[in-house]
Amino acid sequence: MAQMICLQRWKWMHLDAFSHYAFMSATCSNQYGLMDGLLEELEIQQLHSVSQSTIYLLRTWSLSLYTIPRQIKCFIIVGAVASANGSALAKIGCTTMLAAVKLEVMTPKLESPDEGCIAIDFHMPPICSPLVRPGRPAEAAPVITKQLTDIILSSGMIDLKELSLVSGKAAWLAYLDIYCLDADGSLFDAALLSAVAAFSHLQIPVVSLNDNGRIVLISEENSGAMWEKEPVNKEKRKLKLDTLPFSLTCALHKNYILADPSAEEESIMETYLTVVLDSSLQLVSLNKPGGPGLAQTSAIQDCVALTIKRVKELQKMLNEAISDMEVD
């Protein structure tokens, strides 16, 4: 039964001669899930009858969405970095992101005395892709940093007032660092997922105000001695996250939509569209930065529909990951 559903979701994709190599290597590595039993049903003859210059690449969008438990699936591990206040490891397909949040006390800005601050940085070390060379920072990294900052701040996910400690005197500065460990396409999706998971895991430590008017951490051991100084935070608490943004990148080619492209697919299909929706299915961002193709209204609607599906799946997965963590 599951196979039949999968079958309906197969899409034929028409690409030019350029993709010949990509298609062959994809077939060899079975990366696009040219599943053994289904291959005959998919009229393999059609593949052979195609002329040398045009190749049909087939893939289903659902493959990347872990509908089919194959190597392209995603998972989240929260609390992956013990030394950070909040952290998560997110994997979508082969794309792996490690995000960690570290809290520091700072003096809030004059114009917003009772608000904390978030500083986001996205790193692409040479380990993530052969295209990144040491010494020269990747071009994509600052762009993704900017987009993540825009989305996390504009989505209203975090109420900055919650990061305040003493109005006008002290507030939390949250450093969010995301490391790309494996860049296999759809970097933004994985980065946002890891960032959201890290913030969901974030625990604000117990602090108190000492005699000099400074904020000091209360660690587990000396908590008894410090109790009389009335902590600013009564206990470790989690951030209240209103709505969580989730995203899906789709590559567009003619009339076809390819969700969650891998690096190889991104190199062939240069037009892509990223839709970010929050948990209440409001549009946080719809980003299509140029590229050779155009996005028709119907294609955008389809991408939004795919993203709605994706948001529900990722939300469920994130809830599971967090509840697993709490049980441990």
Binding site: Q282, L283, L286, N287, K288, G293, L294, Q296, T297, I300
Partner: peptide
């Protein structure tokens, strides 16, 4: 018209409903 309708680039800031986006479009 169908050729003209395609978007080359779209960049958004801020939260809105999907319908609002299409209204802007």
């Amino acid at each position: 018209e169908s050729i003209e309708n395609g978007i080359i680039t779209s960049v958004t800031h801020g939260v809105m409903t999907v319908n609002n986006y299409f209204q802007c479009l």
